[in-house]
Design a protein around this nucleic acid. Structure first.
Length: 98
DNA sequence: GCATTGACCGTCT
DNA sequence: CAGACGGCCAATG
């Protein structure tokens, strides 16, 4: 798979995340079946502009340092329960079968 | 082709 | 519950 296609696949995966739910970098990587969490992060940094990138967070429920504040606000806007700067993954985590 | 680096993850103190 | 640690995978110099 070319890098360009990988990027496409990741972006599509992110676009398929329903409002009110979130996914971790690792989840996206696993869903695409290629690369790892860090690759997904790198892609979001460059090409994430056109997709709901704010629905992608760390496995800890904490968003990336760079965009953390904005991201949390956007998530709240989507109806995601955010507690003390953290997302309740146990409740809002995305799974491909939804 | 090796070394560094990064929107990371799981496990073990 | 917070750090430390090692592992991970690809881009970049």
């Amino acid at each position: 798979m070319d890098r360009e296609e990988y990027v496409e696949a990741v972006l599509l995966a992110v676009e398929s995340i329903p409002p009110g739910t979130v996914a971790t970098y690792g989840d996206i990587a696993a869903y695409v079946g290629q690369g790892g969490p860090r690759q997904v992060g790198a892609i979001m940094r460059e090409y994430g502009g056109g997709v709901p990138w704010w629905r992608v967070i760390r496995a800890s429920g904490i968003p990336a340092e760079e965009v953390g504040d904005t991201q949390l606000e956007l998530l709240r806007g989507d109806g995601v329960r955010v507690t003390n700067g953290k997302v309740n993954l146990h409740q809002s985590r995305w799974t491909p079968n939804d």
